[in-house]
Design a protein around this nucleic acid. Structure first.
Lengths: 230, 230
DNA sequence: GATAGTTTCATACACACGTTTGAAATGCAA
DNA sequence: TTGCATTTCAAACGTGTGTATGAAACTATC
């Protein structure tokens, strides 16, 4: 193990370069040059380039997920096991938006790295994102408690749209600024979070009160898989 | 010019392969093998790999944009120069969603190609997407006519969220299916369009009627750029 | 049917990339 | 110090890539 100096120098340099120039434009040689480290050190410490990228991404996204769940748990405890749908949506999109657009994080390498990861979607990152399903299921469960009787599909659509708005805002931040000629304030992160939450809640509660739903029963929908993946 | 047979065989093969396996995994050699054509033909007919990709994408996205504007124009003419906000949002997201998720298009190469383009975002495609701003401005203009007095920033946010929901639905179609264990029906495209339109309209009209707005004036915000790009 | 222009073809180039190698250097316990 | 494990290093490997080349095949015009 020793000092781990080389290992962390590589991680820091890689995150910085990927954040600045994207995954497509940065080679291992760029990274080791930035880190003042030998080329072979990457394979020695991480095994491969993809595993290096995976470690970077997994570290950051675990932190975000932890933050999300903490906020959710706090909201549910404060509400006696049932959080308001606003609080749930806030816990879902707040950490991500704050992490990527946040104030002091303006120049944060981590934030810019996560934006890149959200835009470019390179294979090792995609693999990790696909394991995020059961993390999201915890939010669906909370939503179900918060809005009992609501059709499950409606909950999924609401969650889906909430993620759509927050991810797309991160991803297209610059395009929106240009399109709106600066009229959309992308610096006030709290305002953005509130905006996304407001629309998400409207999507979940504003429209149809129960939709079709011919006697919604408790049985799971036919022979669908109940678990089995990841 | 001659028969153009080689040229179109390359285009077809490239679109098919990119649609199936993504941009990262398909080489020129794969394409010419699929097209039964010589390797050098790509550079002869298109100049470079990037120009081939650009031509593929530009063709498809011009078609979508044309469809969008036709629908918008029809809606405005039917309303005497002012379309309903529902109709405008419908014209904005309908063609894209139909094009990528649409019924008979289920196995459509073009649709799957556009989904890939939406997910992977390779440089030549990104370059083209950045020129899409003034196309979107036409929708902002229509929205302004439809909702006069509404703060411009609100219109931009509404447009932004509409695009967020439609693109994210295309992009994460499979993840949503898995997450919801099939409970979200991604085959009924019209229902999806209506859903996205409904939430977009709520985002634009449901919330605050005028927000803060301390005497909104007509002057542009300080020294911001008014035109000059694109 | 010769000629000029276009298109196809096999082949090679040049190079950037991730990875491997094997030896040198370093750290650490006995 | 000796011996062993860990870490660093310079150099090379092997391969896959987009692109270039120059000759051959084809097409159309006169």
């Amino acid at each position: 193990m020793a000092s781990d100096h080389t290992r962390s120098a590589i991680l820091a340099a890689a995150e910085r370069l990927y954040a600045d120039r994207g995954f497509g434009d940065v080679t291992l040689r760029d990274i080791v040059a930035e880190a003042n480290v030998n080329l072979a050190a990457v394979n020695y410490h991480f095994g491969s380039k993809d595993e290096l990228i995976a470690e970077l991404f997994v570290t950051r996204s675990l932190a975000t997920n932890r933050e999300r769940l903490n906020e959710l748990k706090a909201a549910e405890e404060a509400g006696g096991g049932r959080a308001s749908i606003e609080a749930i949506m806030h816990a879902l999109v707040g950490p991500t938006l704050r992490g990527c657009l946040g104030p002091d994080r303006e120049g944060s390498t981590a934030a810019r790295f996560m934006i890149r990861a959200s835009i470019e979607s390179v294979p090792p990152i995609r693999r990790i994102k696909n394991r995020e399903v059961d993390h999201l299921r915890k939010f669906v469960a909370a939503m179900r408690r918060s809005l009992p009787g609501r059709d499950d599909a409606e909950l999924y659509w609401g969650l889906h749209f909430a993620l759509a708005m927050s991810h797309h805002t991160i991803r297209e931040k610059e395009r929106l600024t240009k399109l709106s000629e600066g009229q959309c304030d992308l610096n006030d992160v709290n305002a953005i979070v509130e905006r996304v939450v407001a629309v998400s809640v409207m999507a979940l509660t504003g429209g149809e009160p129960a939709k079709k739903a011919p006697a919604r029963s408790m049985v799971p929908p036919y022979g669908r898989l109940t678990r089995q993946d990841i």
